[in-house]
Design a protein around this nucleic acid. Structure first.
Lengths: 146, 146
DNA sequence: TCGGATGGTTGTATAGTACAACGTGACTGC
DNA sequence: GCAGTCACGTTGTACTATACAACCATCCGA
């Protein structure tokens, strides 16, 4: 017999996967310039004030070749630039360009607006709790398993 | 100045998109036989005790061509069968085969186990609330916008 | 009965991804 | 200081999921 705990887990699983299914499509549709992946990588660069391709790959569990191509695309669009690392000639430190920061801000704003609309009728407390649960879940699923 | 409300929305957005990024990859890795999309479609068929391709497309916001191909793949693997609709010759009602039900159950179980592991140290109440929030969010993002 | 709507398939193009092979540079033990 | 190994990144190749458009077959309402 499924416990209520099992049922909650089942629901969480179903809803999160459903979200995953939709996310890419809607992102692609609303922001043809900056796909979900590109957006995320660029946002990470902005957040970290620059980092290496390898760091991106590790953080997002992507193959380095994938990151290499995504970064190349972002560079072609003028959203990131590569700076040599003085300490290690192999390394290119990636930074958003001013245009990159601009575009990021604009996409983030409109994306935020879409979320705001969906979350418009939530109480502040519910929002805070939902956010907290998601962070907690995210930590659990990125943390290296023992 | 960002309100605490804004910050919660920001966090929810970030975490949900991060989840979306990982979901497909891990699904593909752990269950090469049944991708995230195939799994979801098959699960829907099981849930509904059969439905039409068009219904799947509408429900998951996928193009009918995408569904057509996914279903063809599932059929090739022996997981679904098509039954003619006596009332409408255009329609093929899709049903999981016994093998489909079996595979679905096994993949669902192992997927559930992975979630269980991540959610192991959550209280029952937190799980219930998290599930409720996700359902609420899901309704908001699939509901046709006014 | 004809014209539009509906269900489905197929052709074509694209994005995102992985894996493998490679080149170059850095580090380590001897 | 040199050989072997490791780390960083690129490129070749292949595959999956996806959309859009063109199409065929069927259904239905005026």
């Amino acid at each position: 017999m499924p416990s209520s705990r099992d049922q909650s887990v089942e629901t969480i699983q179903r809803e999160l996967t459903a979200f995953a299914r939709r996310a890419r499509a809607t992102a692609a549709r609303t922001h043809p310039q900056l796909s979900l992946v590109s957006f995320t990588l660029l946002a990470h660069l902005a957040d970290q004030r620059g980092c290496r391709a390898t760091d991106l790959a590790a953080h997002y569990m992507l193959d380095k070749s994938t990151v290499s191509r995504q970064v190349a695309a972002l560079e072609k669009l003028g959203f990131v630039e590569r700076r040599p690392d003085p300490d290690d000639q192999r390394v290119q430190v990636l930074h958003p360009t001013p245009l990159g920061y601009e575009t990021l801000a604009s996409v983030a704003a409109s994306r935020r607006a879409a979320f705001q609309e969906r979350l418009a009728d939530w109480s502040e407390q519910d929002l805070a709790r939902f956010a907290e649960y998601l962070v907690r879940y995210g930590r659990a699923s990125t943390r290296p398993r023992s």
